[in-house]
């Protein structure tokens, strides 16, 4: 495997690994809080699930960016494209926005969601508010994903 392809694959791997790690931490934080609340009030499972699942999206964004890289490299089909070293670097860098924003935002979103879980425990009718607060954090992961998609799309192989 030549350097160009290696770099491109490395970028793809980073996107899913960073986003996924962030989401794992974020969902973990929210999940712990939710489990605590449910020990008192098991019937809240349904609404709390929403809050716990929310920091999981960054992992999905990373995953789908990686898939786009694979598509671009033709690694899913029979014929793989061989990018030059420059193109490899380009793909590598294009993967960074979604990876890094995903990692950081998922952790912080997890914290917001965990606090949101406590809020719902006391004010069950105010589910919308913590959801929106969490979405405020997620915005930056979405923007990262957007730029990764646009960058990947603009790299011509």
């Amino acid at each position: 495997m030549d350097l160009g392809l290696t770099l491109a694959v490395l970028g793809g791997a980073l996107a899913v690994a960073l986003g996924g790690s962030g989401s794992a931490i974020g969902v973990g934080l929210a999940g712990q809080a939710a489990a605590g609340v449910m020990s008192e009030d098991p019937e809240k499972f349904g609404i709390l699930l929403l809050l716990v699942a929310l920091p999981g999206t960054q992992g999905i964004y990373g995953f789908l960016s990686t898939f786009l890289v694979l598509l671009k490299l033709g690694l899913t089909g029979a014929t793989a494209v061989k990018p030059s070293v420059h193109q490899g670097w380009q793909i590598f860098v294009a993967c960074l926005p979604v990876g890094i924003t995903g990692l950081v935002s998922a952790i912080h979103q997890g914290k917001v969601c965990a606090s949101g879980v406590y809020m719902v425990a006391k004010q069950p009718k105010d589910l919308a508010k913590p959801l929106v607060l969490a979405a405020l954090v997620e915005t930056y992961a979405v923007l990262g994903l957007l730029i990764t998609i646009l960058l990947l799309n603009s790299i011509k192989l």
Binding site: T57, I60, Y61, L64, T139, V142, L143, L145, L146, I149
Partner: peptide, 8 residues
């Protein structure tokens, strides 16, 4: 975000 989520 509409684009990003739609493509996701």
């Amino acid at each position: 975000r509409l684009l990003a989520l739609g493509m996701a």
